[in-house]
Design a protein around this nucleic acid. Structure first.
Lengths: 242, 242
DNA sequence: CGGGCTTTTGACGCCGCTCAAAGATAGTGG
DNA sequence: CCACTATCTTTGAGCGGCGTCAAAAGCCCG
């Protein structure tokens, strides 16, 4: 299940070098991190952390997608975060997290042992500053998400979600490429605070209207970007940041 | 409308000295902050910032309560943060915020001019570390809030909200003191992703069941704490942090 | 006492959830 | 290569919780 890479991949050639928690580190600081890092891989569907488990490592997501979810006693589940490459896993200043972290696709993490990492945070301002920035960015995203959860209709939620994926895929306009749909219907439902049936129905509706198409279950194409945006309920400039 | 205090209140006797962004500062660092700080007051209902306005000051909330809200084109409004004394207003690394900040009660802020404050953040690790901690705490709260918005019923939302106020009032058990209800029904609705009518109905239901009572519109008393907790939908230990 | 606000309560309808079943798709072993 | 199965997805029927609209009641301040 968990595969540990022993190759000593150089940070300097790391794909998330300039975006992760180490983004602002100079070479000396990077060398410190390099000494305490270990790569780990998880297959799609594998748990990375359970809520409440002691957190022995912090890590940066190098590749793949992971979900943070909270589940109520009776099974109702809400996704509370979606981790993309360069995002940070862990909670300095607390020794557990109170959500589950699950690999949604195959995932590679760059793990740091907790103790030495926290010492580095104390010692190197660049890391604390970068972590503050990343936490604030996540907070901004969480706040947009709260508007979606509290106030948007099912249709608007789906349209907003698809538009977010479009924006994130950094697609050149003109062409209509198939965009990856990295979650199952159930995961999308847990992301958006809906049931999977409602997700499916709203997607079918957008398809019937010619706004999007679904070549297969894990991809979609945008046929009418303006119509998609209209369906999000957001204003012209788009307030959503994710 | 906006009253500027010119008194030079000493940081050392500040009520939020040990919890705000300056919590970890030593005397020298505090002296730097003291030079650039100015107090400002806002009356209940006054706007503190508008979404998108340039952010000339950062600040700590010294007393009172302020709300962060986002409003959609058609008027649907969602509260995305509730600021209590010691909470920070502002977004280092960005020159606007994309929500409105409103004084919900009479409010006093300890304001720092932006430019010099950001220099201090760069220069003093204690401040960046404290801001990271505060951002992560807010993120935890936002995640619990997302579960509430996405998955809880109206009844559970109201019960969770009231229980949060109880917890925050740090009330000695035994007695049944009147607890402050710092928001109007409409503000509560915007906080919880409901309409004000539903808020009123659910409160009436809890009252009819003898779980709480409402001596007047701005206060409530808990008559049955266990029943209140049962109504939240949370597990026995309570996962909510706010 | 009267006007404007907030809050409560009622009646009704719709959106999204529940329950149920059929249809796709992928993986497995003969 | 084709069943056979497990899983994911779609679609349908029906219902109920919460929103909408409306009006009455309570409260504050002049």
């Amino acid at each position: 299940m968990t595969v540990v890479f022993n190759e000593r991949n150089k940070c300097s050639s790391c794909p998330i070098r300039h975006r992760a928690v180490c983004a602002r580190c100079d070479d000396d600081e990077l060398a410190l991190l390099e000494q305490i890092k270990v790569y780990r891989s998880f297959e799609a569907g594998q748990p990375i952390h359970w809520r409440g488990d002691e957190l022995t490592h912090f890590s940066s997501l190098v590749s793949g997608i992971a979900a943070l979810t909270k589940t109520m006693e009776d099974g109702r589940t809400q996704m509370v975060g979606l981790l993309l490459p360069s995002d940070f896993v862990g909670r300095p200043g607390r020794d557990t997290v109170d959500f589950d972290v699950t690999a949604t696709s195959d995932v590679t993490l760059c793990c740091f042992k907790r103790q030495p990492f926290e010492e580095i945070v104390e010692a190197t301002p660049h890391v604390a500053q970068r972590m503050m920035e990343m936490a604030l960015d996540e907070l901004d995203a969480a706040r947009d998400w709260m508007v979606l959860l509290g106030r948007k209709t099912a249709r608007e939620k789906i349209a907003t979600f698809l538009e977010m994926l479009v924006r994130r895929s950094h697609v050149e306009n003109m062409s209509i490429p198939a965009i990856d749909l990295p979650l199952t219907r159930e995961e999308i439902a847990n992301f958006l605070g809906l049931t999977l049936e409602t997700v499916s129905r709203q997607m079918s509706a957008l398809k019937k209207e010619g706004v999007v198409s679904f070549p297969d279950r894990r991809h979609f194409e945008v046929l009418d970007l303006a119509a998609l945006h209209d369906a999000t309920g957001d204003d012209a400039d788009g307030g959503m940041i994710v």
